[in-house]
Amino acid sequence: MRISAAGNPFPCNPRDSVNDMVEMIRIEGLSKSYGDVPVLRDCSLEVARGEVVVICGPSGSGKSTFVKCINGIELVQAGRIAIDGEDLPSKPAAAARIRARVGMVFQHFELYPHLTVLENICLAQIHVLKRSRDEAQEKARGLLRRVGLADKEAAYPSQLSGGQQQRIAIVRALAMDPVAMLFDEPTSALDPEMIGEVLAVMLELAREGMTMVVVTHEMGFAKAAADRVVFMDQGEIVEVAETARFFAEPASERARLFLSRILAH
């Protein structure tokens, strides 16, 4: 799916066909279990630079765990993950450097409640990227302006609506200049009237050419922004398909069933 970049407030290059060929995330044979209960079984996926991949599936299918494994905040028992050509080390401490290059947005925002909006956005810039305070704040303010929350920089997270908090969480991740962004059900903890404002920001990011892996139930977003859709069930990647084809004629019976249920609502 290609959308014209005209009117895009993010001044970045739209995806081009050359970038589509460059691999950004490679996941091979990922397996994980909690005790005897397997949560991920031999999952493999490649994501190209600038590609938007939506992961969907019934609850308990392991999609949330899968996306958290990509930057190593969930440990895996078997498999290999590479980001931008660099292997993710199995030791958590060593993985920190690579993690800093991958942005992550959580279901429950996870803004730091003891810090203001501006401090939230600056914290990792200063302590991980070693940017100066001025540099970090300048970066933060620029991004806040773009998502329309410039007036909220002195507020604490608890003073903001869920939609505002999630937009700030996205800004916090973007401030690290990530090479890719991971979203773990970014709208499922939001009241319905706030979902739109968060999806709008994500849509702009997608148009700008950000590499994105998005776990979501928002099929509207998938249709509008995703290049490919991954369908997971019971810890397995059942199907990977071009977005249009996935919605028109899903290959697997399980995906067909899932779609018929979710689209019936």
């Binding site: 958290k68 401490a93 690579i98 993690r99 800093a100 942005g103 992550m104 429950h108 003891h114 990792a124």
Partner: peptide, 27 residues
């Protein structure tokens, strides 16, 4: 402190001690 806060700190590339000092301990 909610596990999500640890994960958010980790996800932004902080080390274990940084996550404790900057995010978890103040809360």
């Amino acid at each position: 402190v909610r596990p999500g806060q640890w994960q958010a700190a980790q996800a932004s590339g902080m080390s274990y001690l940084q996550a404790i000092r900057l995010v978890v301990l103040p809360q």
